[in-house]
Computed example of a mutant assay.
Amino acid sequence: MDLTAPIDVTLVRRLIAAQFPNWADLPVEPVEPGGWDNRTFRLGDDKSVRLPSAASYVAQVEKEQRWLPRLAPHLPLPIPVPLAKGAPGQGYPWPWSVYGWLRGRPAANGGIADPTQFARSLADLLLALYRIDATGGPPAGQHNFHRGGRLAVYDAETRTALSALTGRIDTDTAQEVWASALGSGWQRPPVWVHGDVASGNLLVEDGKLCGVIDFGSSAVGDPACDLAIAWIEFSGESRQAFRDALALDAETWARGRGWALWKALITASGHDGNQREAAKSWAVIDEVLADHRRVDRR
């Protein structure tokens, strides 16, 4: 089925009225930014509606419906918990979800009071996630764009980006980072991973981390993918605090650098993202390469 109706307030109101009439009188407002994989709307004061924006994201609905209620009780901060599952209708072809609304605003909008404490709080949440029994959890794959899996799936894409950026970055060091990332794998039992630990998915209230959203890229596997934020959002003391709190081995951190480098390379080379994101990616590349050089000199 194809999407025949725009994903907007009108569609959400029609879907709610048709499938959950007890909520039909609640106001619906778009959440900005609304997200890429999904479009999110606020429903009343205490609910949100999340609709996949394309067929490739639909598998995330069933995954979140099944697993988030099982993960939430084991985590130190709130995550979205489904309240209802919607069905295709009103010109919208896929399943969708209603969640409880989480307080706070995305860290991407600023408001972090103490980056080092924020980094420790995030590490505490991730450690709690990694301790949850992963038996039966979904392995990494196309449903979550291989987060938690092996980086080799992006080898050709990364090498194409490196070639495109020759003369603009230190490609020799970048190739070392990439080779190091591909040179190891997670040797322990698979753990739950969030898969998209980014400032837009981390909620802040009173300057502190207060919740984590968007588990659409979650899976069980290698936690290295969750480390990319260390070079994207943290630096200096906050990055070190994040690393110390997680206490993961050097090879996992090398793979984490690989995840950060892959995304930054494809964005900076023009294969993904917009100009603003591309500019940020240049800074991430610099941070990853500098960090690799520091580690290599030890």
Rank of each mutant, 00 (worst) to 15 (best):
D296E: 13
S281W: 03
D291F: 04
A268S: 13
Q275H: 08
A290S: 11
L289E: 02
D286H: 07
K280L: 07
Q275L: 12
V284K: 09
W282E: 11
A264L: 07
A260E: 04
A254D: 15
H292N: 04
G273A: 13
A279N: 08
H292A: 15
D286A: 13
A254R: 15
H292D: 03
D296A: 15
I266F: 03
R293S: 06
D272H: 15
T267R: 10
A254P: 02
I285Y: 05
V295I: 11
R298M: 00
I266V: 15
L261R: 07
H271W: 01
T252C: 14
L261W: 03
G273E: 12
A268Y: 10
A264Y: 01
R297H: 10
G270A: 11
A264I: 03
E277N: 08
A283V: 13
W282D: 11
R276Y: 02
V284A: 09
L265Q: 02
I266D: 04
A260H: 06
T267C: 13
G258Y: 14
Q275M: 03
R257D: 07
V288R: 02
L261V: 09
H292V: 05
V288I: 09
V288P: 07
R298D: 05
A278V: 04
E287D: 14
R298S: 06
R297D: 06
R293A: 12
I266R: 15
A264M: 07
H271Y: 07
A290Q: 06
R276Q: 11
S269I: 05
A283K: 12
A268D: 03
G273K: 12
A290W: 01
G273S: 13
D291L: 03
W253L: 12
D296P: 00
A268W: 09
R298Q: 10
D286V: 02
K263R: 14
L289A: 10
D286Q: 14
E277G: 12
K280R: 14
L289M: 03
D296H: 08
A268T: 08
I285W: 08
E287L: 01
H292S: 06
A283R: 13
T252M: 11
D291S: 11
A260Q: 06
A260G: 12
W253E: 11
E287H: 14
L261F: 05
A290F: 01
V288A: 01
W282L: 11
S281H: 06
Q275D: 08
